[in-house]
Amino acid sequence: MPPRLLKLETAPDLVDQVYRSLHDAISAGLLAPGERIVQEELAQRFAVSRQPVLQALRLLKQDGLLEDAPGRGLQVAALDAASLEQVYQVRGALDALAARLAAERGAALDTKLIERGRKAAAGRSVAAMIDADHAFHRAIYAAAGNPLIERSAQLHWSHARRAMGATLQRSTLRETVWDEHEAIAAAIAAGDAERAEQLMRAHCRHAADHLVRRLADVPLASGERR
């Protein structure tokens, strides 16, 4: 296991700490699709016993971020274009609902969200681009006034984040995505629920089509990093 994971401080809930650290590493692409996960090495790296590592790995497998490796053990799950398309079908429905509800409430999103996004898109940090995108969508979830939307969307975020991390560095999507975001925010602020919903559906469909094409064009091999 490469020395990219920091040791964890002793705390009551080590399972959650191990889970979060591995979850973030997989989502950000620090642990690549197909990379084998060795429980004993992780325990040593985190300076914890094997038990919290074992429980964290079980949770990550349930999330679909880990899968059975050939022979025995676990490996980081592959990035699958068909599965990603399904993720975005669900995300598109949730985000469209959130945009409609936010518009019905006449919510005004913080303009700094757009400024932050454009700045990130003009830079080279994929992590900053992803974080800015996540912050914008979370702001709409909050503005919708229905906490179940964000909770449901978060179930699928890690898979979308992995795909974005794998494709954004070579993608042209970042050049237009914040124009779409700004139009959505304007429709929400204007109270135009129909337009806000339509724009969000189109936005999610556009993002899904783009990411799926990029994954198909540039498949990730085991151990490959971007």
Rank of each mutant, 00 (worst) to 15 (best):
residue 65 L to S: 07
residue 147 P to I: 01
residue 102 A to G: 02
residue 20 R to M: 00
residue 124 R to Q: 14
residue 95 D to C: 04
residue 63 D to H: 07
residue 50 R to P: 05
residue 47 A to T: 10
residue 66 L to P: 01
residue 50 R to D: 10
residue 141 Y to R: 14
residue 120 A to Q: 06
residue 106 G to P: 07
residue 86 Q to T: 14
residue 26 I to A: 01
residue 23 H to C: 01
residue 121 A to I: 12
residue 32 A to Q: 09
residue 59 L to D: 07
residue 137 H to A: 07
residue 77 A to C: 06
residue 30 L to K: 12
residue 53 V to A: 00
residue 129 M to T: 04
residue 131 D to N: 11
residue 147 P to T: 10
residue 95 D to M: 11
residue 22 L to E: 05
residue 124 R to E: 14
residue 25 A to T: 04
residue 124 R to I: 05
residue 149 I to L: 15
residue 113 L to E: 12
residue 29 G to C: 05
residue 114 I to N: 05
residue 75 Q to G: 01
residue 93 A to E: 12
residue 82 A to E: 15
residue 23 H to W: 09
residue 146 N to P: 04
residue 26 I to T: 00
residue 70 P to T: 03
residue 53 V to K: 02
residue 58 R to P: 07
residue 101 L to P: 03
residue 49 S to E: 11
residue 96 A to F: 01
residue 93 A to P: 03
residue 64 G to H: 02
residue 46 F to E: 06
residue 140 I to H: 01
residue 94 L to R: 02
residue 62 Q to K: 14
residue 95 D to N: 13
residue 75 Q to H: 04
residue 112 K to H: 11
residue 38 V to Y: 06
residue 45 R to N: 03
residue 120 A to D: 05
residue 147 P to N: 09
residue 30 L to W: 13
residue 45 R to G: 02
residue 71 G to I: 09
residue 86 Q to E: 13
residue 122 A to Y: 05
residue 39 Q to K: 13
residue 137 H to M: 13
residue 32 A to W: 04
residue 46 F to D: 03
residue 109 L to R: 10
residue 27 S to T: 15
residue 55 Q to L: 13
residue 26 I to G: 00
residue 88 Y to W: 14
residue 128 A to G: 10
residue 55 Q to V: 09
residue 115 E to T: 15
residue 46 F to T: 03
residue 108 A to C: 09
